[in-house]
Nucleic acid binder design. Structure first.
Lengths: 198, 198
DNA sequence: CCATAAGCGGACCGCCCGGTCAACTTGTTA
DNA sequence: TAACAAGTTGACCGGGCGGTCCGCTTATGG
């Protein structure tokens, strides 16, 4: 599989150009950004796009894979931080920051078929579970919260600020803090539903 | 404006059929549900759709208006409830329930041009502000939370459960409870950003 | 019950999209 | 530097979309 002879120099450059242009274009126009526009933005012909990525979905998958890997690496690194509570908060902060700079959340579901993505994402999810377990053991968050809970809530701060036109760029911090307060042991009320699994 | 001669009986029936079919179709397929499919589902010709709603956006606007009105009426009613804290929670529960039954959140931005919608929505937002003020005065939620905060957080429970495949239908209640715990006075930490305005 | 206008339907239009392809250009390697 | 494979390009294709239009049907009021 993937004999992977190295790309020609110009081809490699074009591929990188394309990935960046596509990310920008998707961030600006959403899922319906057209392949033609992406090609124009990257300064290449439309045919070149399809040479590198057989379908539009493949292009999306490549972008998603990049981002998941970055986040996963950060999470792994934070597993060694001294304070488990702040480590978790830092991870959530970084995730929100990544999304604030470029909101590509609507691309997530695209890569569910590509094994490389589900694998990388699974690894990242496992890391989050570890971060959460550490924080819980340390008493930084309440007992009835699971890693899955945190995975789900992770994206909420950016989501809610999306409804504010011309929101200050750091507004998501307000809602991350608010939600994180809900995760703390103090003042916790019993939850009406069991946690889900992914 | 709108001389509004009453609709012929069959036309009124078709209009209602169309609205229901469109809501179902959008809920199933998202924004890109086609007008042709909506017409088929309602059992009418495509031309009939455009007779009632000059553009697809007008159709969307009509749906959105309906839902906003329903929610606004409920909020107004809850202003008279005895306990302000549970009144607010009940409102949030109802909003989440509406969205759980049929997620049409992606249609929201469509009606921003239609004055009737922004007016109705503004009224509903004002009601939420009143509900929140009452709850805050009563000590049910922390001092640094505004009505706008609640408006933004309102949709988060459904949003986060959207990431769970085959989620139990009441899972949103878990996250509503969790977020609501973050709004409570107990264990509140200072928030890093001022509240936004809409 | 009939005349009439309100309502209906679906073929049709132009547009834009994702994807293909064959002619052309260019990096690579011996 | 020559020869070839790798890469590029944009015209082109089929299809689906929102929206139009006009001949037909039908509810309605006198």
């Amino acid at each position: 599989m993937t004999p992977d002879r190295p790309l020609r120099a110009d081809a490699a450059r074009n591929r990188a150009l394309l990935l960046a242009a596509a990310a920008d274009e998707f961030a600006e126009k959403g899922l319906e950004a057209s392949v033609a526009d992406i090609a124009r933005r990257a300064g290449v012909g439309k045919g070149t796009v399809f040479r590198h990525f057989p379908t539009k979905d493949d292009l999306i998958a490549a972008i998603v894979l990049d981002r998941v890997e970055v986040l996963g690496a950060l999470g792994t690194h934070l597993l060694d931080a001294p304070d488990p509570g702040t480590a978790l908060l830092e991870f959530l902060t970084a995730a929100a920051q990544q999304r604030q700079q470029q909101d590509l959340s609507f691309l997530q579901e695209a890569g569910d078929s590509l094994p490389a993505i589900v694998e990388s994402r699974t690894r990242m999810y496992q890391t989050i579970h570890n971060l959460v377990d550490r924080a819980r053991d340390h008493g930084a968050i309440r007992d009835d919260i699971t890693g899955t809970d945190v995975i789900l809530l992770m994206c909420a701060p950016n989501y809610v600020t999306g409804y504010v036109p011309d929101a200050p760029p750091d507004l998501w911090r307000r809602y991350l803090a608010l939600i994180f307060d809900g995760l703390r042991p103090e003042g916790a009320h019993p939850l009406p539903q069991p946690p889900p699994t992914l």
